[in-house]
Design a protein around this nucleic acid. Structure first.
Length: 116
RNA sequence: AGGGCAGCCCGGGUAGCCGCGGAGAGGUGUCGGCCCAAGGGUCGGGACGCUCUUCGAGGAAAGUCCGGACACCGCAGAGCAAGGUGUUGGAUAACGUCCAACAGGGGAAACCCUCGGGAAAGUGCCACAGAAAAUACACAGCACGCCAGGGUGGUCAGCCACCCCGGUUGCGAAGGUGAAAUGGUGCGGUAAGAGCGCACCGGCGUCGUGGUGACACGGCGGCCUGGCAAACCCCACCUGGUGCAAGGCCGAAUAGGGAGGCGCUCGAGGGCUGCUCGUCCGAUGCCUCCGGGUUGGCUGCUAGAGACGCGUGGUAACGCGAGUCCCAGAUGGAUGGCUACCCUAGACAGAAUCCGGCUUACAGGGCUGCUGACGUG
RNA sequence: GCCCCCAUCGUCUAGUGGCCUAGGACAUCGCCCUUUCAAGGCGACGGCGGGGAUUCGAAUUCCCCUGGGGGCA
């Protein structure tokens, strides 16, 4: 992933993505993308890291239908993420997740035109 | 009643929708096996889903500071080394933990605090200051009792009085130094002094009584000896090492490749113990370096020194008995999001083999018992 | 998860109970030297990660925290 994939980022997140080349999933566009989350110890204690990971996982679940299928994705949280979660809550996290997926052009085309 | 002290407990709640992990059940999806007249039928519950039921972080899950269980290590045997503990008695699987008692200290009391063996086994240290830091001697000093000498005065002289120096004898720490000074205070005593004597206090030894014991109380004796062992050490007791990434099973992949060294029963080398001995293993074998491959699955994995209330023994820690219950097991690592209402407006913080403790962090709240200084009635 | 190690001026370090009010080098600042800069000389600034305990006395010994670093499939 890190060697061959491409990456985009904003202040709170880094996103690595790579098209799936898996024999068990032949119809790439039909299956939804796999998303992994990476939260390092720099972000705080175990409780803080779990909170960040859960908010990222919830944001990805709520917007799963809008994300283009057929990719492996890794989302890495950066240090200001804990402050964003404390201040803005889950809504702000979801907004930033969508922003970074839009930068990578991984949002489905029909969803792209709808102003959210 | 405020306050104080001790012990125990709780750690947001309720409802709805969506979502995550485990277990169990179902068999209308898919998958797999078998049969087939090609429509399907049947079996399975192994895999992926689906439906239903049920469970789903903590009092510290934390720090990893101790103690165990469990597992492995060519059975762990002996000695040394190393490390740990340290009043007494008990509890316990065990402990450096807990309970009770003792000693010392604090508080008016309830109660609280204390790593609390040995300094006459030995070695070492005690800076600066001070005569001296552990040994009672020297130096400085006091007394001028005794001896010898000198000087002055009185006296004819002997001799007497005073002074000086030296020796001898006796003396012990006042002034002062220091964190600490050779038992303390007072009185007597003396040339000057000193437990030299006496009284009280403190310490030591010994005897008696009480107590399992630490120790306490009382009698008698005599006055001999600072501190530091979280300095080395001595004594008593304890410890084999490594840790679930321990360990077991299955599968996949690569090249049983290259260089160097040692050795084949008189033996290289080998312990996941630092050394010695003992013991054991050991032959196209072992060690070091270079180079290459795999970063899969199952198991260990949660029913236990288990939880709950009851009875019972014990001052207590805790033990015993019968009853009821099953209460997380993830493996990129599961508890969340949204909405509504209520309250005291939610702190510290997330299981990773398990358990008993310790330590550290913590918003707030509840219950029980005890105490009575001060203030109010 | 389990097991180890370390912490002294801004940086690298010495110091193993009292001689430490902690020494040295580089860096910074000031003065001298030089026409000026560098080098050199003199001087200044600046530190024992935090708390408690033992001791008369702790950077040093013991305990608890804090912050770094490493190893184990």
């Amino acid at each position: 992933m890190y060697r061959a994939g491409r990456s985009v980022a904003n202040r709170y997140l880094v996103l690595y993505y790579f098209p799936r080349s898996d024999e068990s999933a032949p119809s790439n566009a039909a299956t939804s993308s796999r998303i992994g989350f990476s939260v390092s110890k720099r972000l705080g204690s175990a409780v803080d890291r779990n909170r960040v990971k859960r908010s990222l996982r919830e944001a990805s679940r709520l917007s799963e239908a809008r994300i283009q299928g057929g990719f492996d994705v890794v989302l890495i949280a950066r240090e200001p993420m804990t402050e964003l979660l404390d201040r803005g809550g889950a809504g702000a996290v979801e907004e930033k997740v969508l922003e970074v997926f839009r930068k990578a052009s991984l949002l489905a085309p029909q969803e792209e035109q709808r102003p959210s």
